[in-house]
Design a binder for these strands. Sequence first.
DNA 1: GGCGTGGTGCAAACCGATCGCATTGGCGTT
DNA 2: AACGCCAATGCGATCGGTTTGCACCACGCC
Lengths: 150, 150
Amino acid sequence: MIAVAHYDPEKRFAAIVQKFRESRHKLTPQRLAVARVLATSEGHPGVDAIYDKLQDDFPTMSLATVYRNVMLIKSLGEVLELGFPEGGNRYDGNKPYPHPHLICMQCKKIIDPELASLKDLTREVMAASGFKIVTHRMDFFGICPDCQSR
Amino acid sequence: MIAVAHYDPEKRFAAIVQKFRESRHKLTPQRLAVARVLATSEGHPGVDAIYDKLQDDFPTMSLATVYRNVMLIKSLGEVLELGFPEGGNRYDGNKPYPHPHLICMQCKKIIDPELASLKDLTREVMAASGFKIVTHRMDFFGICPDCQSR
DNA sequence: GGCGTGGTGCAAACCGATCGCATTGGCGTT
DNA sequence: AACGCCAATGCGATCGGTTTGCACCACGCC
């Protein structure tokens, strides 16, 4: 398996909470719980996965609340949204900047491969096209080793 | 502007029609019209754009017919679908294999930059992860020269 | 040219995501 | 520590792009 660089979830959680404070948003238990899940972003969870994970602690929490808080954290720039046309967007609040993803088409797991920097490619595109590149998206779709052997 | 390699729309159209025949699908005027638009895929049209473009020739054609035929051509492997989480998927039937795209976030135009092959990256990912890579997606989002000067 | 079946047009259904609203509760103020 | 404002929550209703069901139509084998 590829080595995966990641940040300390505690530090990421603190950074997100800091953004809440700066933007004068209230620190509700539900909000903090969503932030905590995203700070780790184990497995690049979708809204459903976040919702399920918090069912034990917040049995009455609404799915709408998860949606709203994920969107809030996204608007604060503290989570990377991986949108998919078929729905079920996934989120990465541990590394909230664009990076490549490796997606298993069968079990839907998503991991972060370590790749030679895309900086060169981005620079190449900017120079050749005249575009001002704001962000990018790079996904590899395939079958993971686990699913291959199943 | 980046030079863009593309295929002869006539040849692409013939190839798609050939697939229709092989798969025993009827050659209706609406189906052929959709295939003809996709063979060129000027501007990477979405379903709406295809529908609009064919209004003059087929004023009574249903949007559902466009959807069904685009999906058919996709299932035949003759069009590349560029799905977006916010909807409005775009299609490329001229180069129906994965390749990078450069997308203007303002006017939504999509062009094909010429880049050093991604083969090396794909191979790197496969070797390092053990995944069997089936396809990929690589988009650069930015502001095109036209929109920058507006 | 006739027939069978797949294709079309229309409208209804679908469904994840979002919104409206009444209630709740975080947190600045006193 | 208690108050009170207004953002946040939970719930149900709603939305809009896409898909589906169905009756009618027409492509293409014979």
